[in-house]
């Protein structure tokens, strides 16, 4: 019975506190903290959606958006980005499974605020959360020769391809 008293309770409690605190912070960083969006892992999706632009994280749009986009590839923001039917199905399945309101929910809690899923938004850069996060970026920065388009995340978020969108 004497053994129990030998355990140093103070460092133990402190250690547990630190652990618990980091778990909360880490958990927040990974879940809806707003700056991490799990990048595309599927090689086909990466290749087909990542040749012209960054392969945007599926958790940045709801499933309805991805379905609509994949159905309108003939006019993909002005370009014909059609792929064959089998590839299209594989890409759609992946995007829908990892979308902001399905498998990727834990990354996108805040991004979907104020978004009507039924309207199937097509531009990530028009989501209210995206707009408010970027409100302080001046016009000349968007026009900078290394940026030029709001779809060019990596111009400012160096680690975007790995899923990190910190400032």
């Amino acid at each position: 019975m004497k053994i129990t008293t030998k355990i140093p309770t103070r460092p133990l409690v402190l250690g547990l506190l630190v652990l618990g605190f980091s778990a909360i912070v880490l958990g927040r960083a990974q879940a809806g903290g707003g700056h991490f969006y799990s990048p595309v892992a599927d090689p086909v999706v990466k290749e087909e959606c990542g040749s012209c632009h960054l392969a945007f994280a599926p958790s940045m749009l709801p499933a309805s958006s991805w379905k609509r986009m994949m159905g309108e590839l003939k006019n993909h923001f002005g370009d014909d980005a059609s792929v064959d039917a089998a590839t299209a199905k594989q890409i759609t399945d992946y995007l829908v499974a990892n979308a902001a309101d399905t498998g990727g929910r834990r990354f996108s809690e805040k991004l979907l605020r104020g978004v009507s899923v039924a309207s199937a938004p097509q531009r990530i850069t028009e989501l209210p959360k995206w707009v408010s996060e970027h409100r302080k970026v001046p016009d000349w920065e968007w026009r900078h020769k290394d940026v030029r388009t709001k779809a060019n995340c990596v111009a400012c978020h160096a680690d975007a391809a790995r899923g990190y969108y910190d400032e």
């Binding site: 990542g50 040749s51 012209c52 632009h53 960054l54 290394d146 940026v147 030029r148 388009t149 779809a151 060019n152 990596v154 111009a155």
Partner: peptide, 9 residues
Amino acid sequence: AAGRTPAGK
């Protein structure tokens, strides 16, 4: 030399 897509890639 490398090129660049309109979307910056």
